[in-house]
């Protein structure tokens, strides 16, 4: 993925879970580049790329519920998660879009 200095940044600490960090870029009202990161656990680790892929193309107006629905298949069985959920990713994405200052 491309990762530029103009990215917006959002963070969300899931209650009872871990920190989810999102850096993303909007173009034409859509998520054009995104990197989800954090101190959570995923098995297998290739699931992370699937989360990023699921978010690409999401409209900037998407609600937390809509974003969570996009992400959910990437975090469903057989993927195992510890300290991260589709909702937590969605909230971090929303925070990046809403408040995320360009860094």
């Amino acid at each position: 993925m491309s990762y530029t200095r103009s990215m917006r940044h959002g963070e969300y600490k899931m209650p009872g879970g871990k920190l989810v960090v999102v850096d993303l870029d909007l173009r034409d009202g859509q998520i054009a580049a995104v990197q989800v990161s954090g101190d959570f656990f995923l098995e297998p680790d290739s699931a992370l790329a699937d989360i990023d892929c699921a978010l690409l193309g999401a409209p900037h107006s998407a609600s937390v519920e809509e974003l969570a629905m996009r992400v959910s298949p990437a975090l469903s069985a057989p993927v195992q998660t510890f300290g991260i959920s589709a909702e937590a990713v969605a909230i971090a994405v929303r925070r990046a879009i809403d408040g995320g200052n360009s860094t």
Binding site: V21, D23, Q35, V36, S37, G38, D39, F40, F41, D45
Partner: peptide, 9 residues
């Protein structure tokens, strides 16, 4: 750093 952490962050 952890497997899923951003280096710069």
């Amino acid at each position: 750093i952890g497997r899923f952490q951003s280096l710069r962050n």
